[in-house]
Design a protein around this nucleic acid. Structure first.
Lengths: 348, 348
DNA sequence: GATTAGCACTCAAACGAGACGAGTGCTAAC
DNA sequence: GTTAGCACTCGTCTCGTTTGAGTGCTAATC
């Protein structure tokens, strides 16, 4: 199924042009703009072949040709020329990560904003904390109100989770500290996923005072803890409306609705297997509503064991080259930031 | 400027009809659907008067009339008939607040979802924590990693803020607890707004060990603390695209862009003075981009001193009756939930 | 004096016929 | 293998026409 050089070049030209203009590409356009040695008739023949091979579709007889999903696939896998970012662009990305932060939500928001402003696509950033992989390092109970305490869980990697619990009796700060010490010592090293089980075990031999706290801890899990996804930020939704493919309000609405359903966004960001960067085109996105979209995702493992997934969504006619370069640079800047964080931590 | 009864009724009919259909209303429609005793010619004369009085606009000579912002104002202030919710609707709202929660973010998300699904408008929920009004009740430092600690601030009302700090040396958990006790005792009762100042004072007489922590506390304020707004959730954006006024993609895009700018949303939700429920129509929203929108906001004071503002945004042709009833019911359900929380707290 | 029937007038939207033009496929000549 | 040429397709644009909902005004009616 190898395409001879010329067909290959023509196909590439068509895709390039279509990505740029969103208009079906005609043979004449190619012969003038890309392959001046060849007449439009020759191009026409080649295009006819390419259509037969499944790389091109024609909306109707007298329009030009449009790349098929198969063509985009080939384009992404083989035709993509590395497209270096301008100095300004690199600088811009770096500037977004200059200030240090430990608030993952802040960082995600910044990433989302930066990416959607640079690419003009919609960006979703998700942070996953696989509970099975996270191991408790420290536990602390903090008094909040009379019969209300704050439970803080710190993992080995340094991730923090907290939730407010109602307890059946009032507990003095000093007692709370004592309980924290005991629990912290007993539970240190437990994977978060095993925590509920361990708590039940412990409450067997616990005295009355402790039992109430343990019970509250088991029962009052925060909603967030139900899923692994701890933060989900979406930016640049309005960008979608600039694309001619969404000049039809109904289509735009359908896509925006998907973006409003947390589970759907999570699933769109998720099924990229173990790839670091993945490009899914049209039906590969695995969702009916996004059959005309492409999704590019990149995942990074944070030092605390959490996984950050960054996704860009747009029409299949996506500027893959640009998107991949930008995502790559973001990845580099991000690891730099994280490394620096870690280094600072070491040095001190 | 009082409108005689009949004019008043006719105006009301026009607004009702326009809100329902989004189509300019003609004299014939009114005479058939609303005022069957009167001929279209009579209505026509009245409508002409109403236009002169500034209550109606005509898009062009041969279309019907459209209510002006002044008309909506009158409608909201005087014409609104209480529109009781159906049993199902009330039940639905209540069901959204059944599960108790201390996570304001969860609650906000639920409110936003419920409101946008019931009204088909876009909902924004904001939580403000006026630092000047919040008074520290307890402070706790929790070990996170080698030279990294978590600072937890608990206010008298029971609100919790936390941030991760980098400190210049490694501190044992027990020392951290001792420092927490000292600081907690010294700072208890300080308004959060006065905290930075107090910290500087304290670091004057502090020993070396403490000084580093105090410095980290003053310097490393989390981004969130910069503003009073601690959470902002928006739901039902795609609803906007169902309204004929946004069938023009550019208009939709402009409005969606506003919703993507945090500061703008905060400002839209904010300037309702001290009203519990406020309705702002068109230019009253105070923003160029929303001159064709109306915004209804409701504010509730939470028991911990924070203020929750719920806002609905849609075209000026908004179903004010329905929106106000739903918001009212949400307010009731919400206070019930909060009261119950408080009662539980008392009883135990 | 208020109401209404009647009528001329307006104007956006819907419709339809052409003209246009970008594009194709095919054939025949180079 | 390439290309010039040509007939054909079909969406889009343009423009005049029709339609119909609506208005304002006037004169007759209650």
């Amino acid at each position: 199924m190898d395409l001879v050089d010329r067909k290959y070049r023509i196909l590439q030209a068509i895709i390039d042009d279509y990505i740029l203009t969103a208009l079906p590409v005609g043979s004449r356009t190619i012969s003038r703009k890309y392959e001046q040695k060849l007449s439009s008739a020759t191009i026409r023949n080649e295009m006819s072949d390419l259509e037969e091979l499944g790389y091109l579709d024609s909306p109707h007889t007298s329009a030009g040709r449009v790349p098929s999903n198969k063509a985009y696939r080939l384009y992404v896998d083989q035709m993509l020329r590395p497209m270096p970012l301008s100095v300004e662009e690199t600088a811009f990305i770096n500037s977004c990560f200059e200030r240090r932060t430990h608030q993952v939500a802040d960082l995600s928001t910044r990433i989302a904003r930066a990416l959607s402003s640079m690419t003009h696509y919609t960006t979703a950033v998700m942070t996953r904390s696989p509970r099975s992989e996270q191991v408790l390092s420290h536990l602390q109970l903090v008094p909040v109100a009379d019969r209300r305490i704050l439970l803080v869980l710190v993992t080995r990697g340094g991730a923090v989770r907290q939730s407010v619990l109602d307890v059946p009796r009032s507990i003095a700060p000093d007692e709370l500290y004592a309980v924290s010490r005991i629990l912290s010592a007993r539970l240190e090293g437990t994977p978060l996923s095993a925590l509920p089980g361990r708590l039940v075990e412990l409450s067997g031999g616990a005295d009355m005072g402790m039992a109430g706290i343990l019970q509250a801890m088991t029962e009052q899990q925060p909603e967030e803890a139900q899923s692994d996804v701890s933060a989900l930020v979406i930016g640049g939704r309005s960008n979608l409306l600039s694309f001619p493919e969404y000049s039809d309000v109904d289509k735009a609405k359908a896509l925006l609705s998907v973006l409003e359903t947390r589970e759907k966004v999570v699933s769109l960001l998720s099924n990229n297997g173990e790839m670091e960067i993945s490009v899914r085109i049209g039906p590969e996105t695995g969702m009916e509503e996004t059959r005309d979209c492409s999704i590019v995702t990149a995942s990074y493992r944070l030092s605390d064991g959490r996984v950050n997934t960054i996704g860009l969504i747009g029409p299949t006619r996506m500027q893959y080259g640009k998107v991949l370069s930008v995502l790559g640079q973001v990845g580099r800047s991000l690891s730099e930031l994280l490394d620096e964080n870690d280094r600072l931590e070491q040095k001190r």
